[in-house]
Design a protein around this nucleic acid. Sequence first.
DNA 1: TGTAGCATGTAAGCCGTTACATGATTGA
DNA 2: TCAATCATGTAACGGCTTACATGCTACA
Lengths: 164, 164
Amino acid sequence: MTGYELKQRADKTLRFYWVSPAMSQVYTELDRLVGQQMVMASDELSGKRRTRRYRITALGFESLQGWLNSSATDFPTLKHPVALKLLMGALMQPDRLRSMLKQYVDDLAVSRADLLAVRTGLGDLEAFRYPALVAEWGLDYYDAETEIVTALLEKLAGLPERPG
Amino acid sequence: MTGYELKQRADKTLRFYWVSPAMSQVYTELDRLVGQQMVMASDELSGKRRTRRYRITALGFESLQGWLNSSATDFPTLKHPVALKLLMGALMQPDRLRSMLKQYVDDLAVSRADLLAVRTGLGDLEAFRYPALVAEWGLDYYDAETEIVTALLEKLAGLPERPG
DNA sequence: TGTAGCATGTAAGCCGTTACATGATTGA
DNA sequence: TCAATCATGTAACGGCTTACATGCTACA
């Protein structure tokens, strides 16, 4: 794949469980990987445009497999601005707090729809079994989060201001 | 609070929905905030040890409130090494894949227990209403994640190697 | 013909980390 | 007495971003 294509792929799928890197980083990392003989590059000329296409080397593949099988797996890290603000909900205007949570529910629906399209696109081919499992995980995750925040909104509606 | 205490607080609670900053960053940020008149520092001498205690200023409080109420709230970002590896599950040894997922379920239980202790410590005081809501959210989140991964493990057990 | 998308890169800089450096206090 | 914890900071550096810079190609 080209650097450009890798970035598109990352924006489409990787972003659901990792940060999608900037274009510039994709190119720098590819250069680094070429230097380490993890990937090889080949230039293609079509018309006046040069396109550099990368493919993984045997060394790169072995390294990847070694990393997957041997290294410890870190616990996920989360940066959750909605939870962070809710923590200080007492300092927020009640309607602003509610609209933030409603907005989050809407955003979750958008993300879920995007991810569902990815899942559907994968089909039921054996070759995409694991990517499909990850996508399904993500869909379940969005469903759970949506349920939690919806219930939270109802809880807040029940006690509109400070009660008593 | 002192920088040291803030770091402890972050390690105990903030880490569940944000990255807990390094000690050094806590001190640098506090310095910056003092420079911006967002917080004020006062030195306390007890014996030979100097302890610098910080408190928020009126300006800092207003800024915080303004940020909470007016700014847009970003969608959460996640770095999920387990999902990342599962995506390439086809390149992993089946037992390594399974043990990774089992380990993750165990880690989730540990995190959940830590968070439950935080929730319990908050009690049902009105003053801690919002922190309590955030903690409960986290508990629900861990429960959902645990259920999803447990189901995933069963799905994988059902189809041990490539079927067909 | 002009704009969106394809395509590749460099430079500056921010955010946050680890490593380094120092010393007091408490309790086993 | 010695290890853990309290307590504060500086320096170097890594990872990643935004801004800058350039040019081709397809299509409305």
